[in-house]
């Protein structure tokens, strides 16, 4: 028993380390970060006979300062704008995709068409297509719909993404068939069954899906750089991907601000997430 805890604690430390470093280092001063992460030798080092320097991961800041947060949040007024942009992209996708997928997954459950499994297989196969391959056709379609420079070019494909259908259908399978039949006998319509029987059962599946979609769209980079040309309209993820190499003095605080929402989302839904995937795992 004790051995089990030991294994888990050791592994947890390894898994949590990047998060811990990001959080603690966000309270370091820029100078301290430079000291820890740059390995270019200065003249002082050469005089001191140091010929090689290595990266140091330091967990406890020498002095706690909020300067990074001030620099990120207040000295760059655009940061808040970018954060809002991230929300503007992510929120509609999460809500839209969940709603559309729920309806579709329900339809697959009650549909009696004999080829529905084949149609469902198409959903899965299309989901497997790598991004690079569909970027150009997506652009062609966005151009055709005249939305190629707006968020819609990113949001609309997100709403109709087949992953949600797949996940929700799997978890809907766990709802016993008897529920539907009993309701049917009582003369309930499909809408009624959907709203009053299926939806309450699906809380966990919905949580799971919305969390995974949230994380995916919060971290979105590739589609954005193709469609959004104005950098004041870019979401935070793009900004962060560019900041990563250049301004290491800011990256930790920026990451923390960036991570705050998804972490909160994850913590909120963690209990449900497990349950949701549990259901979708049971066929």
């Amino acid at each position: 028993m004790r051995k089990n805890y030991a294994i888990l604690i050791v592994l947890s430390v390894i898994f949590i380390l990047p998060l811990l470093i990001t959080i603690t280092n966000s309270f370091m001063s820029e100078a301290e970060i430079w000291l820890n992460y740059t390995t270019k030798l200065s003249t002082f080092d050469l005089v001191g006979g140091i010929t090689q320097k290595f990266v140091k991961f330091v967990l406890i800041p020498a002095s706690v300062t909020l300067s990074q947060y001030i620099a990120v949040l207040f000295e760059q007024p655009t940061f808040i704008v970018l954060l809002m942009n991230s929300i503007k992209i992510t929120l509609p996708v999460v809500l839209g995709n969940t709603a559309v997928s729920l309806l579709c997954a329900y339809a697959f459950t009650i549909w009696k068409w004999k080829h529905k499994e084949k149609f469902f297989f198409v959903y899965i196969i299309v989901m497997l297509m790598p991004l690079q391959a569909v970027l150009v056709p997506n652009y062609i379609i966005a151009d055709w719909m005249n939305i190629k420079t707006s968020y819609l070019a990113i949001i609309l494909p997100g709403i109709f993404s087949p992953f949600g259908v797949f996940l929700l259908r799997q978890s809907m399978k766990a709802i016993p068939k008897e529920y539907f039949e009993a309701a049917k006998i009582d003369g309930a319509s499909d809408w009624y069954i959907f709203l009053h029987i299926v939806l309450p059962q699906m809380k966990s599946g919905i949580a799971a899906l919305s969390m995974l979609v949230f994380i995916e769209y919060w971290n979105l980079v590739e589609q954005v750089i193709v469609f959004i040309k104005d950098y004041y309209k870019e979401p935070l993820s793009v900004f962060l991907s560019r900041i990563a190499d250049g301004q290491i003095g800011l990256i930790f605080a920026a990451s923390c601000v960036f991570m705050f929402l998804p972490l909160w989302f994850l913590a909120m839904g963690q209990r449900n997430l497990e349950k949701g995937i549990e259901l979708s795992g049971v066929k």
């Binding site: 980079v221 993820s237 990451s255």
Partner: peptide, 11 residues
Amino acid sequence: FLIPLVIPSGS
């Protein structure tokens, strides 16, 4: 064990 999913790819 779910934390790696939320860490932004930049960090």
